[in-house]
Design a protein around this nucleic acid. Structure first.
Length: 465
RNA sequence: GCCGAGGUAACAUAGUGGCUAUGUGGCGGACUGCAGAUCCGCAUACAGGAGUUCAAAUCUCCUCCUCGGCUCCA
């Protein structure tokens, strides 16, 4: 099966083919390290986590890089306001990021470069751009000379003259052209700064990504990702800089995720309509949040609201119930095999095919739901050990990508198990004596403790919500 | 204004020339002491208009509407 990916550069869904061999370099724009991450950041992290997982499943050797931007207006503002060194702020929010994303089942990237730790390389790159005639100094600042490059707007499909005609570009007399963007900025009083040949100051926003991605992945690499709001100007400028530096094509596939909306408006810090990951995880299981994020194709926007999360909880619970039942049945099922393995293999095939079509997690999840229904029927019709093992194996494949299932009872449930055996024993006695009032009371009181008790054909089952 | 992504049943999402979708919710049935879980069934779809085609939700054109980008942003 061949993997197809939607490339922003061409606007097409294309067959995925690494530049050479089976190595894949993947760079994704991470966060600015001045505050807790919100659900929009979670969407991005989970999206590219899944993309990375699927590339690995396809057998590619992926080197995954996510950067942290710590030299930027908000970070500088925050470090001044709190009166702490930039490094300390950076470290704190990198830690928080890893904590939050870790809870959401996001696997660690291979490398997490930090902008302020690459100052030497950044300054070197700017100097090289000046030497090659792609940048110029003006009053202690350095600008990229957009008119010096032949290709403009490759990614965002814009033309220079159209951009110049656009009304929203601020004029700055230090720039030769309004389209030029800053590579090195003068410091302002009280701001952290670095020494450079041009002034005491700091780099512009775009150059760090060019420098760090090429440092760790080479001058040309396969995948560059981020939220769709980064297409212009950030990624567009990255391409111009990088290709001006190397003289080679920068990135083969540009992948952009849809944004998180709140009531059809973009979730963002500046609109102050954001929900932090920490806040959301107070009310919802991390796996539910992850499911919620993956239940829409990554390139589409998702509207964040309580109803959608509650629905996600219900829907994921349905599949988890099936998995729980299959795991429980495994202990008591008769030895032997049957041909349910075929159904499981087909489900996995369908799942993989969906993932191969531009990482269509929504479609992949649909096939997992269909499979769950088949498994429920199979469980009722008398499953064998061999068949159930195939079932569990299929869920493990789904989870390799989605990472939304629980295969083992958590510690708390282990502790409760002997106690629950006693309570259930008493209740079963009451039921046998048709003392339903007592039986129902036990069930209700357990429910008040978030322990759900359900009678089934195979006897009572319980779980902690 | 320019560039991009969209408008699918009550709601949320897939699909993208013939196969009628997945979940949530609703209704009916099976099972159950009841509840729940599960299974089976039912209803409600492709923004509007024109065109191409034996055949259009899917292709073409036009219109309307939504969102994003053009400024810090995942």
């Amino acid at each position: 099966m061949t993997l197809r990916v939607h490339n922003t550069m061409t606007g097409q869904t294309e067959e995925f083919q690494p530049i050479s061999g089976s190595r894949v370099g993947m760079y994704v724009c991470g966060i600015n390290t001045y505050d807790d991450s919100h659900m929009g950041h979670a969407k991005s992290a989970v999206t590219f986590d899944v993309i990375r997982r699927h590339l690995v499943r396809k057998g590619y050797q992926v080197t995954y890089v996510i950067n942290f931007t710590d030299i930027e207006d908000h970070c500088i503002e925050r470090t001044i306001k709190l009166g702490i060194p930039l490094d300390q702020l950076t470290e704190k929010y990198i830690g928080e990021y890893h904590k939050d994303m870790g809870r959401l089942g996001v696997k660690r990237a291979d490398i997490y470069p930090v902008a302020s730790h690459h100052m030497k390389e950044i300054i070197g790159a700017i100097q090289k751009l000046i030497d090659k005639g792609f940048a110029y100094e003006s009053g202690g600042e350095v600008y990229f000379d957009v008119m010096a490059v032949a290709e403009f707007g490759k990614l965002s499909h814009r033309k220079k003259d159209e951009m110049l005609a656009g009304a929203r570009i601020a004029v700055d007399e230090r720039k030769r052209s309004p389209l030029d963007f800053v590579l090195w900025k003068n410091k302002k009083p009280g701001e952290p700064f670095w020494e450079s040949p041009w002034s005491e100051g700091r780099p512009g926003w775009h150059i760090e990504c060019s420098v760090m991605s090429m440092k760790y992945l080479g001058e040309s690499f396969e995948v560059h990702g981020g939220g769709s709001e980064l297409v212009f100007p950030h990624h567009e400028n990255e391409i111009m800089q990088s290709e001006a530096l190397s003289g080679k094509p920068f990135v083969k596939y540009w992948l952009h995720g849809g944004l998180m909306n709140v009531g059809s408006e973009k979730m963002s810090k500046s609109l102050n309509n954001f929900f932090t990951i920490k806040d959301v995880l107070k009310d919802y299981d991390p796996m539910v949040v992850r499911f919620f994020l993956l239940n829409t194709h990554y390139r589409k926007p998702i509207d964040f609201n309580q109803k959608a999360l509650a629905e996600a909880a219900q829907a994921l619970g349905r599949m988890q119930n099936t998995l729980d039942a299959a795991l429980a049945a495994l202990a008591t099922a008769p030895e032997g095999r049957d041909d349910f393995g075929k159904v499981a293999a087909e489900a996995v095939e369908k799942f993989d095919a969906a993932m191969d079509e531009d990482f269509n997690t929504r479609d992949a999840i649909a096939s997992a739901f269909e499979f769950s229904r088949e498994v429920n029927k199979y469980l009722e019709s008398g499953a064998t050990k061999g068949g159930l093992e195939e079932v569990i194996k299929a869920y493990r494949v789904f989870d390799e990508i989605l990472s939304i299932f629980k295969f083992e009872k958590v510690g708390q449930e282990h502790m409760l198990a002997p106690l629950m055996d006693i309570i259930i024993g008493i209740r079963q006695k009451a039921r046998a004596e048709k003392n339903f009032k007592l039986a129902d009371e036990i069930r209700d009181r357990l429910k008040a403790l978030s322990i759900v008790l359900e009678d089934s054909a195979d006897g009572p089952k319980w779980k902690v919500l």
